[in-house]
Design a binder for these strands. Structure first.
Length: 197
DNA sequence: TGTATGATCGCCT
DNA sequence: GGCGATCATACAG
């Protein structure tokens, strides 16, 4: 079953865990995502429509790529109905295809460091500003939804690296994956949330 | 194992 | 002019 990018960013972020992304044949299984919504102080779209975030207000199912800290690129998938600015940040992959090219681009060997972070992942897949606004269902992108019978546990937690709306549990990870950018803090959802902080 | 810091650019105030 | 949806390196303990 294909991914419905016109759903909410939360639904898309959750359903992307276990799916695969490839750029020119290089990629792997998504193990970490974060949802960003228009009514979300941490989102680029919160302050309204600007030149940078224009793609996030356009059609769902496209790539939104922005420069982070002047150095790195970060890849998002645009979702939600037309006119509502929202997207999902792809934060980490488990590399499965084109691993040698990732190693060349990243300049290191350890598979756990190739795609474990939004900036690292873009360097490994050679994603840049040139990909901003491109459709996800066409070359060079290829998205493969996770199999219907996939048996995997998705955990939610707080997002990383933001200063606003820190408490929202809008980060989704493949439970127990060794390819996450950071270990989840104490489970943010579930019975034992007392131990946070 | 963890905390601090520099790099570097575009957007927004 | 300040501040990031980051990462690698340099230290301290």
């Amino acid at each position: 079953m294909a991914i419905d990018f016109s759903a909410s960013s939360l639904d898309v972020a959750r359903s992307l865990i276990g799916a695969s992304v490839f750029v020119d044949g290089v990629g792997g299984v998504i193990v970490e995502t974060e949802a960003y919504d228009e009514d979300d102080p941490a989102s680029h779209t919160f302050a309204g429509h600007t030149a940078r975030n224009a793609v996030m207000f356009g059609s769902p199912g496209r790539a939104y790529v922005y420069r982070s800290y002047g150095i790195h690129w970060c890849l998002n998938f645009v979702c939600m109905p037309r006119g509502h600015g929202a997207g999902v940040l792809i934060r980490a992959l488990e590399p499965t295809a084109g691993v040698d090219r990732m190693r060349e681009r990243r300049g290191l060997d350890d598979p756990r460091l190739l795609c474990s972070g939004p900036g690292r992942l873009c360097q490994a897949l050679a994603v840049t500003h040139a990909h901003n606004g491109l459709r996800l269902d066409r070359r060079p992108f290829r998205i493969v939804a996770r199999p219907d019978d996939a048996d995997l546990a998705v955990h939610a937690g707080v997002r990383i690296g933001i200063s606003k709306a820190r408490e929202l549990p809008w980060r989704f990870v493949l439970a127990g994956s060794r390819f996450l950018s950071k270990r989840p803090a104490a489970a943010a959802i579930g019975p034992n949330r007392a131990k946070e902080r």
